[in-house]
Design a protein around this nucleic acid. Sequence first.
DNA 1: TGTTAGCACTCTTTTTACATGAGTGCTAAA
DNA 2: TTTAGCACTCATGTAAAAAGAGTGCTAACA
Lengths: 340, 340
Amino acid sequence: MLTERQLQVLQVIIDEFIHTAQPIGSRAIAKKEDISFSPATIRNEMADLEDLGFIEKTHTSSGRIPSEKGYRFYVDHLLSPSRLSRQEMTVIADTFQREMIEFEKVVQKSARVLSDLTNYTSIILGPRVFETTLKQIQIISLSDQAAVAILVTSTGHVENRYFNVPASMNASDLEKLVNILNERLTGVPIIQLQEKLYGEVAELLLKHSSDFEATYNYLKAALLEEQPVKLYMDGKTNILLQPEFNDVHKIQALYSVMEQEEEMANILRTSGEGIKVSIGQENQLDEMQDCSLITATYSLGEKQMGTIALLGPTRMEYSRVISLLNVLSKRLTNTFHSWY
Amino acid sequence: MLTERQLQVLQVIIDEFIHTAQPIGSRAIAKKEDISFSPATIRNEMADLEDLGFIEKTHTSSGRIPSEKGYRFYVDHLLSPSRLSRQEMTVIADTFQREMIEFEKVVQKSARVLSDLTNYTSIILGPRVFETTLKQIQIISLSDQAAVAILVTSTGHVENRYFNVPASMNASDLEKLVNILNERLTGVPIIQLQEKLYGEVAELLLKHSSDFEATYNYLKAALLEEQPVKLYMDGKTNILLQPEFNDVHKIQALYSVMEQEEEMANILRTSGEGIKVSIGQENQLDEMQDCSLITATYSLGEKQMGTIALLGPTRMEYSRVISLLNVLSKRLTNTFHSWY
DNA sequence: TGTTAGCACTCTTTTTACATGAGTGCTAAA
DNA sequence: TTTAGCACTCATGTAAAAAGAGTGCTAACA
């Protein structure tokens, strides 16, 4: 559909604009190495590219900038996978080299690396808990009124849930309670906790002693408490480095939406498997219409466990970002795999 | 030193400027209710106040704005404690009303309330762990190579430390280990963990079985690992609302410094007891020289446990902020007290 | 027929000039 | 001691002019 020459011109415009953030004129394009035609010819091609909607002008007599459709085409057809530099590879390797047994730390470091290497904002959605099973439950009494239940999942995730305890419960009662819970709930998928807890466990507990009822109610609430998704962000201030964001209102809008963790998590969660690119208006949220979001997933076996993403201006280094996300997501998947 | 009239004029200038962020001219001051002299008189007083360094001009023929020295004087001598509105009291009461047994949540909510009510950025330094004692320790094996130690402190704080386990350790070994640890370490102040661990516990463990040596080394590292201070911030985007921060570079500088959690924590930690006000250049960090930081402490018994603070422009509603911090810090102290 | 040089035209950006208005400092009168 | 009056300063706003970058179109060229 596009001629070879049009492709060349489009590529130059996008590559240039990604680095300079300035409109590109025909003269500038003509000066490029692999371009061997005059500015006038390029102007003709540019007029065509504009008619097709791949580039646009900022005003009547300005150079051209890529349109969102242009970026889309670029990402879909023009992108040459960029090799990571040796230095980048080293940084990444170092991150994963240390003996790491705590998933949270791995994720935090990954987020840091991503934002450091790109100057964009990295967002990582932590592994889904409900894909895992309960490994063990512990209850530790804090006072005569409060206790904390500690849940450990098969993926080594530890979670603390505080709850009230009626004064009538003593230490040995609690111990019995824990034993029953462990006996019945160990190995149960987190997602099935609720039905188990309502069903047999409730029965068993109440049969054991009617004193348990109040405790059971408190505990139930604590255990079933919807736990917030873990969202790791890094490099939020990187956005401020981008020239398209030297308007305080834009910053304000974007930061506000980034603070809505639930919403962001949702976007990442519903991103499909593999690398996905959302450019400008393709994003669900109005506040992100000047941005591009690139997501990749990591998994354990067949199950998709979480998402890593980079958020930047639509004028993004797509090629490099995609390569980076590819590498990082594979690393995360491997790390995850090696543990379980 | 200052005449009654000068005090009045200074007060009006600061009060006005705090609300409008605009230089105040003599005419505007003369129009104020409790001012009964002409603009010309006020101009004379203003010239004196400027000579004394309490106010300054933005340019030769502008109105006056408070200098940092002016704010300092205002805070030290002119401040009338502002009563919180009923609505504010309600919001705060609501925050603490719910039955709360988890300190982290209380702190998070306090931070939220502070930033919501003030439109500044709230920063809370969580309670110091080393003031507490170890209540219980649990070890849960995650795989044949990894385990997690769960520390519960006397304040109900729960902490997870992941560590490696040599393959030679089996479940009953681990159990023995936990028993020894609990027996010897329960009730020990966190700050003394190290010496205990190096001394008698090491001896005991190694005597028990030389197999424990490797495990002991891993565990020791995990337990003694310097845990990062918990810093809770809320309302970071509020800064963007302040007219003095519509310069992207200023935002950038301030946000960068806020991301340095260690540094921020240090500043809060070394703030003295009670309410402290740092105005502009009085702040340690260069990046905060356009800001004021107001801190208050909360405590358990005699021991100062943590700090709550508000960060905003030097043009801050000192009176209201101080009242708010007073109330909140007392509430936190009470909550803390009621638990232990 | 595709390519290119030439040129008028458009629109932004920068500069300059000028008018306006807020506010001051000073002087002199009350 | 206070205040009215006035010249002066400086920021802000507006308008016009100049500069510059880049386009679209036409006509010539290969």
